[in-house]
């Protein structure tokens, strides 16, 4: 079955998802480089844990640790939303 490519904020929450791609189109944006350093790499598992009371930022889980990232940062992470469903 082909993967269902979905930006992380639109993927179902509280479910382990496979990272397909991290967009680095904007080379000056530090957030995508930081994501890679934290281990958000294609093939790894990421979970959307929750959204802040004000709708942004989002809380994500990578390898047993949780991070708060802004919605626009999360939009750079493409996951396979269909695989586990």
């Amino acid at each position: 079955m082909p993967p269902t490519r979905t930006p992380l904020p639109e993927a179902p929450p509280r479910r382990p998802l496979v990272v397909l791609d991290v967009d680095r189109g904007d080379a000056d944006a530090q957030d995508s480089h930081r994501l890679l350093e934290l281990g958000v790499l294609p093939g790894r598992i990421v979970t959307l844990v929750r959204t802040s009371p004000f709708g942004c930022p989002l809380e994500i889980e990578i390898e047993g640790a949780r991070f708060a990232i802004r919605r626009e940062t999360a939009m750079k992470i493409t996951v396979d939303a269909g695989g586990g469903a």
Partner: peptide
């Protein structure tokens, strides 16, 4: 000017 989006460990 532009700001970098923060990433914060919880």
């Amino acid at each position: 000017g532009r700001r970098d989006a923060p990433i914060l460990e919880m």
